[in-house]
């Protein structure tokens, strides 16, 4: 019986971890290419949840499809935010001062988005009711929530698409080249500023889609970002800053640790396990699980 319990927690953790992984990939991509720590990442996730909610309530769009539909508009939103705001604090001079400016900008953006949504849409939590949210697949003694299973499958699919894009297409390789060495990328006719815009657009689109998937089983409210932004940061650091596969594994690990923590600690303390694991990894392997070398910013 204890084994069945353990398997149950592992499965639940894996499923949740898949969605964390998708969120974290977006953050890692932005950091990897732009060297910008985007504190507003969680707020774009929240906006993705609301867009999915709006599509579901207003037009009867299934949230799993709605999550996919958030991708194009959020990609464009990312391009616009980069062009209007981030371009002024990236690649222009003293990196130390730029880092301060980036921090203030993305943190400010986060506050503005949270508060604007609270004002416009009320702080009241909402949820999308789907038939599968309360259903479970029964596998022997294990119950597997259907909403989480579908969300996991979609997250995995999107992560694979991103991986193929980054490793098989010219644009994807150019993004990685710009992350590796912006100056040398410029010499290959790769416009680094354009790459920043594309990376930010994709990063925002992925976290919005992850938000849409999350909305199939998680309540939607303006302050939901705070519950996830820290998890994303931990996943990205765990995986090795800027590493996409690392962020993916980091996300899965966090889902697992969060879930397994419930075996020994009450629900309210589930993130304690995450932070203990985080500190352990930082202590034993400071470059992260997949970080190969130290990169100075």
């Amino acid at each position: 019986m204890i084994v069945a319990d353990l398997v149950q927690y592992v499965v639940t953790g894996l499923l949740v971890g898949g969605v964390y992984a998708l969120m974290s990939i977006g953050l890692a991509l932005i950091f990897g290419v732009m060297r910008v720590v985007n504190f507003a990442q969680g707020d774009f996730m929240m906006l993705g949840m609301y867009l999915t909610y709006w599509l579901a309530i207003g037009y009867g769009v299934d949230p799993l499809l709605g999550a996919l539909l958030t991708i194009p508009p959020f990609f464009v939103l990312g391009l616009v935010v980069h062009r209007l705001l981030l371009v002024h604090v990236t690649g222009r001079g003293d990196p130390q001062r730029e880092m301060d400016a980036q921090l203030i900008l993305t943190l400010g953006l986060s506050l503005i988005i949270t508060n604007a949504v609270t004002m416009l849409l009320s702080p009241e939590p909402r949820g999308i009711k789907t038939a599968y949210a309360t259903q479970a697949f029964v596998v022997g003694p294990i119950l597997v929530n259907q909403a989480r299973s579908y969300a996991f499958a979609m997250a995995l699919l999107l992560a694979v698409v991103v991986y193929v894009f980054l490793t098989r297409t010219d644009l994807g390789k150019a993004l990685r080249a710009a992350a590796d060495d912006p100056e040398a990328a410029g010499y290959q006719a790769i416009d680094v500023r354009t790459m920043h815009g594309v990376a930010f657009g994709i990063g925002i689109a992925l976290v919005a889609a992850a938000g849409g998937l999350l909305a199939t089983y998680y309540p939607i409210e303006p302050t939901v970002a705070v519950n996830f932004i820290v998890l994303m940061f931990v996943a990205v650091v765990l995986g090795g800053l800027g590493s996409i596969p690392g962020a993916f594994i980091g996300g899965i690990v966090i889902g697992l640790v969060q879930s397994l923590t419930l075996l020994v600690l009450p629900f309210q303390l589930q993130n304690v396990g995450v932070f203990v694991a985080f500190l352990l990894v930082l202590y034993l392997r400071p470059q992260g699980l997949f970080g190969q070398r130290v990169r100075t910013v």
Binding site: A177, D180, D181, E183, A184, Y187
Partner: peptide
């Protein structure tokens, strides 16, 4: 210094 893209 060559500046190849090391992770590609």
């Amino acid at each position: 210094g060559r500046r190849v893209f090391p992770s590609l």
